[in-house]
């Protein structure tokens, strides 16, 4: 495998992780389209590499929140029991599904993410929450979050955050920390399925992980200097374009 392509994979994951970090998204929504559209990497391999990148980033990020004692391990583990099952299901479905269907599903989910970026509820950092809510519904929806994570190579935060904040009324900071803790386990589970099925390309894997780690670190530093509000509007347009390209690829 040419080293230049491996370096490009690292550059792509770095870009995806950097933008994801600036926009408050997991990098998966950007990494998978960038790998498939610009580098021609098969979508199943791109999904696996994306999950691997998210694993490394979420582990590093969750350490910060654990240190600040804003991770609800108890709640995270309750929800993670079904999220892990969802991730296993999603990854196995991906392995059995045709690439064209995965393209279409990913494109549709990207459209939803683009909509949420501009029109969705914004979570205030100082929201204290009241704790409570329907844990059983949270467990059920967590399965869906895990399913999407394993299927599409995303962190699942797009569903986990609403579960934790809107459904279970956690304070925003605790929700972020708990979500990161959960994402590290979910992404490890999904990555494992792809790993033992030989989907992860060992030539790309190190560069994908290192690129994403560097990108996320840069993003967290730049995040204080850049007004994310304008980036969100711009990137929602980019995501719409990506989603249309992926849907059209899937439909042939």
């Amino acid at each position: 495998m040419p080293i230049s392509l491996s370096l490009l994979v690292g550059l792509v994951t770095a870009t995806g992780a950097l933008m994801g970090s600036l926009l408050g998204l997991g990098g998966g929504f950007l990494i998978v389209p960038l790998l498939t559209i610009f580098l021609g990497i098969p979508i199943k391999v791109a999904v696996a590499l994306s999950l691997l990148s998210i694993l490394a980033n979420s582990l590093s990020a969750s350490i910060v929140y654990v240190d600040r004692e804003v991770v609800d391990f108890r709640l995270g583990l309750i929800l993670e029991s079904t999220t892990m099952l969802g991730a296993i299901t999603g990854a196995n479905i991906n392995l059995m599904m045709s690439e064209s269907v995965i393209y279409v599903v990913f494109g549709l989910v990207l459209l939803y993410v683009a909509y949420r970026m501009v029109a969705g509820k914004k979570y205030g950092e100082d929201d204290e929450g009241t704790r409570g809510g329907n844990i059983y519904l949270g467990v059920l929806v967590s399965y869906v979050a895990g399913l999407l994570s394993g299927l599409l190579g995303i962190g699942g935060g797009i569903l986990k955050m609403p579960i934790l904040i809107l459904l279970l009324s956690l304070p925003t900071r605790v929700a972020i920390g708990t979500s990161l803790f959960m994402i590290s386990i979910t992404s490890a589970t999904g990555t494992f399925i792809y790993f033992v099925n030989g989907v992860i390309d060992m030539s790309y894997a190190p560069f994908a992980v290192l690129g994403a780690s560097i990108g996320a670190q840069l993003g967290s530093r730049l995040g204080f200097k850049i007004e994310a509000r304008y980036l969100r509007s711009l990137f929602s347009i980019v995501l719409v374009v990506f989603s249309l390209i992926m849907i059209m690829r899937g439909l042939g």
Partner: peptide, 15 residues
């Protein structure tokens, strides 16, 4: 590379 990946995959199990 395999060793590094295995360590990364199994690290979330620790907590």
């Amino acid at each position: 590379v395999y060793l590094g990946l295995w360590i990364l995959l199994l690290t979330p199990l620790i907590p």
